[in-house]
């Protein structure tokens, strides 16, 4: 099996193959998990130290926007998954539309995020602001965590949108097709991972009781 996939091609990337490419992507996602893990570690320590402060601070979060964004991201994950099945069934047109939908939802998510952040910053809720420095210590740490974690998550969404955009072009050109779709599949894995991170961020920042 291994030998079949690697026989002497001069073009570098073809040395490996479907399984190798997927292994590589999964390994990368595992590093991402540990990367976010460092932040979850900080969150859990500060939440256990400042439980009451976190509760007060979280009252300021807007559950409605948070929930809407969760639904949007889950739905975008759904369309992403569908787009892969579509390509594999040979329907590139449908797949391209589904990918475009995913991108659109990613953008809406970011726009919501923008208004959310903008509103908070407008009211002086950001690290090191005069308002926050007067409040309890845990409250500021909560918002520091909020900005860093949702910020890094949003950065991943932005990167994801870019990559899906590239895949969209490849799908339309036919470079991604029912015989060769590992790039799209790996992009999907990435997008689902970003979705999964949000699945945890949502209760940790919006549903603190």
């Amino acid at each position: 099996m291994a030998e079949k996939e690697m026989t002497g091609s001069k073009d570098g990337e073809k040395h490996t193959g479907y399984t190798g490419a997927k292994f590589g992507m999964w390994f990368f996602l595992m590093t991402e998990l540990i990367f976010f893990g460092g932040l979850f570690l900080l969150y859990s320590v500060y939440r256990s130290t400042y439980a009451a402060d976190f509760h007060i601070a979280a009252l300021d979060e807007n559950i409605v926007i948070g929930s809407v964004n969760t639904v949007i991201l889950i739905t975008s994950s759904f369309t992403m998954a569908l787009s892969i099945s579509a390509v594999r069934k040979g329907d590139n047109r449908l797949s391209a539309w589904l990918q475009a939908g995913t991108i659109a939802m990613g953008c809406v998510f970011l726009v919501n995020k923008y208004f959310e952040w903008g509103d908070k910053i407008g009211r002086g809720i950001y690290p090191n602001s005069t308002l926050m420095m007067q409040k309890k210590k845990g409250e500021m740490l909560f918002y520091s965590l909020y900005y860093v974690m949702t910020g890094i998550h949003a950065l991943h969404v932005i990167i994801g949108i870019g990559v899906i955009g590239a895949m969209l072009l490849l799908t339309r050109s036919g470079a991604i097709n029912s015989g060769s779709f590992v790039k799209l599949e790996n992009t999907g894995l990435y997008w689902h991972f970003v979705d999964m991170v949000w699945i945890y961020l949502f209760p940790l920042f919006y549903l603190v009781t």
């Binding site: 998954a81 689902h192 699945i199 209760p203």
Partner: peptide
């Protein structure tokens, strides 16, 4: 609940 959701994404979507 979050972990159940994550597991669903992991098992089926991924």
């Amino acid at each position: 609940i979050a972990s159940i959701k994550a597991l669903l994404v992991l098992m089926f979507f991924m």
